[in-house]
Amino acid sequence: MSQAAMKRIYSMPESLKDTSNHYCPGCGHSVVHRILAEVLDEMGLRERTIGVAPVGCAVLAYNYFNFDMVEAPHGRALAVATGIKRVQPDKLVLTYQGDGDLAAIGTAETIHAANRGEKISTVFINNAIYGMTGGQMAPTTIEGLWSTTTPGGRDLDRDGYPIDISRMLAVCPRTVYIERCAITSPKNIRRAKRAIRKSFEIQMKGLGFSLVEILSPCPTNWKMSPKEAWMWIEKVLERTYPLGVIKDLTESGDGG
């Protein structure tokens, strides 16, 4: 094969800093960082983006993303993002949040930002566990799943039901688009990337709030190999959290 015919098939997106990250092998955060960065590159939005990092395993996201970022207190990313977006309405403002951040301590901030219809995009990493603090029960932990604070597995009587925050948000009139994705296969990764792109497009068109939930492996705290973790998402986790578009007002035409 001649030099000229060689095709570049891998390069670092400009929206990611050229540095190694601290995520565990097989962790979903790395994959989602990458596709999010690719979307920003493709849309030419890197220099117009302001990101909000959560408290959770992605707390250091500002070390990896190559655009302006602020760290929010645990759970408050959407309140912080609201403040940013109201001051810089022409920027792409995104939050990147785990399930504890978005659906436990930050539930009120999440619901109210969505319900106000803030023109913000949220990437919601659902790994059904508290990664950063070492594997405690998350609001999204499914029935029977072992965690360090549910030793016999989540017990619905004792611990309540896993929360499906994406469906709850779909009820709010001003959420424009909500989709649940996974990153368990190249096909699913492409789907997740398309969803993120759509969310950013919705924001740049000024249509309102959108959220992409991504079922994401935490092999470390699930005590599985990366491969087992992907399979477990497909076989088990997706039963509680089925993939697909949960709400899309852009299709029905009332996205404004």
């Binding site: 309140a79 940013i84 109201r86 001051v87 810089q88 901030e109 106000r116």
Partner: peptide, 26 residues
């Protein structure tokens, strides 16, 4: 300007963080 009656004092102060980071007197 921007006025938001937030859902709580916790949300308000975090909106303040965002607006301040974005450069506003808040």
């Amino acid at each position: 300007g921007t006025f938001i009656q937030a859902e709580s004092e916790v949300a308000s102060i975090n909106m303040v963080i965002g607006a301040s980071a974005a450069g506003a007197r808040v």
